[in-house]
Design a binder for these strands. Structure first.
Lengths: 239, 239
DNA sequence: TATGGTCTGGTGGTCAGACCACCTGACCAC
DNA sequence: GTGGTCAGGTGGTCTGACCACCAGACCATA
């Protein structure tokens, strides 16, 4: 391997930028949407109009639309037209959902969820409004009622975690958790169906709530972490 | 609004499940990939073969492929064929890309990154191997050299954070951070180009490293959090 | 021997035109 | 007011053709 002296190793030519028509169309569409400030629900031009306007075939337009649809940017209604969706709202959660789906049963996901929810608790302690706190408190009451009834308290648990996450007022974290939880609920009932677990969880939830209400970020984060780690370890006796 | 008594409000008929051919094709492909255990890099059938095999037109196959490509499942090489990508890896990076892309410049992303890197530091404290520690130590040396030379220490900073994340041995978190950082670097140069910042960061990095080396998860997490919050607040004087 | 040209087969990329499936609205018969 | 019919416009699909591109085989020349 002599590495040659053909052109000199420094500053080789930059590859030509070739780009398929369909991708160019997709870019133009995104530009168009941004520039004209189109809102969610607005109707785009028809495929035939787009093809004529851009001077390309209808198949290319359709491929571009397909790509945008797969990315959650637009919605296509047969016989009606193409409509805009609000960006990113569902995309992050759907991506997170898929992610969980491909890694179920790995502790990796629990660790990821721990990372996010702990941060949510921390942020909630500094940002929670009185409405947020009221919602979380209501979730605690609901959970208490479920525990008294001898149930698994799934609804109350869900409501509590949702409330805390919501109180972080960080849309990214909210979407992330939404996707992860939805996927969890869909795939497995790995929840707290263990004797005594609901009551224990309820007590821990109360502790987290108090820390948030008291505006103590470190304490809230610490308790949330302990709560999640505890339930996780119970679920994974090995490891 | 009387809500009618046309059919009785209970148990109305379930809508017919209509599904476009192209989506069915996409599903079949995913099934095929899963069932046959295809690996990343494997070559799929050609578009014409797929169309013949599934009894559909080539356009439908192409739309399905376009959707899969937009979701990062396959890679299409003009003149060669269709190849599989590693599913989870690319999924995570596209997730990260989406996170950054939709919320650039918002503190939301920093908060998300804080969540992840703090967890990485915590995990690293219990899992870091001697090799991991050596890499992080090397990053500290590199950063010290850069600081001495009066540079911004970008490389050393990057290497340090990468090393810590790597030491968490959690592929999801690793990919997530990698994707976020990459998108960051691509979009903005919001780095630590402030007087005195590199030296301060270096000191904080040393503290984090010591906590990890000592096997103290809580301390490592706490110091990482303080480090990230500090630099973030500097970058966002408002807020 | 090796470099570069040429050809060939197979691949994805694009196009045009034709249908089909579906939705909407208008109109009409009862 | 109900339901039927129709027409127009929309996306959904198929087909066949051609183009752009890549890999490999082959060959001519130095």
């Amino acid at each position: 391997m002599v590495s040659g002296r053909t052109t000199g190793s420094a500053s080789r030519m930059r590859p030509v930028a070739r780009q398929p028509v369909s991708e160019q169309v997709a870019e133009r569409l995104r530009e168009f949407i941004d520039e004209n400030g189109l809102q969610a629900g607005d109707k785009l031009m028809t495929e035939r109009e787009l093809a004529a306007e851009l001077g390309v075939g209808r198949s290319s337009v359709r491929e571009a639309i397909t790509a945008l649809r797969a990315r959650g940017l637009v919605e296509v209604r047969h016989g009606e037209g193409i409509y805009l969706l609000e960006r990113s709202t569902d995309l992050i959660s759907s991506l997170a959902q898929e992610l969980v789906g491909t890694h179920v049963d790995h502790p990796y996901i629990w660790e990821t969820r721990q990372a996010i929810e702990v941060q949510c608790a921390r942020l909630a302690a500094t940002r929670a409004t009185t409405e947020d706190l009221a919602l979380v408190a209501a979730a605690l009451d609901q959970m208490a009622a479920e525990v008294d009834a001898g149930e698994a308290a799934l609804e109350g648990d869900r409501a509590f975690h949702f409330g805390v996450v919501q109180a972080s007022h960080n849309p990214i974290l909210i979407q992330l958790v939404a996707g992860i939880r939805e996927s969890f609920d869909k795939t497995s009932e790995t929840s707290l169906t263990r004797a005594g677990q609901p009551a224990r969880s309820l007590a821990e939830h109360r502790g987290i709530f108090e820390a948030i209400a008291a505006g103590d970020p470190a304490l809230a984060a610490g308790r949330m972490l302990a709560h999640l780690v505890g339930t996780t370890d119970d679920l994974l006796p090995g490891h």
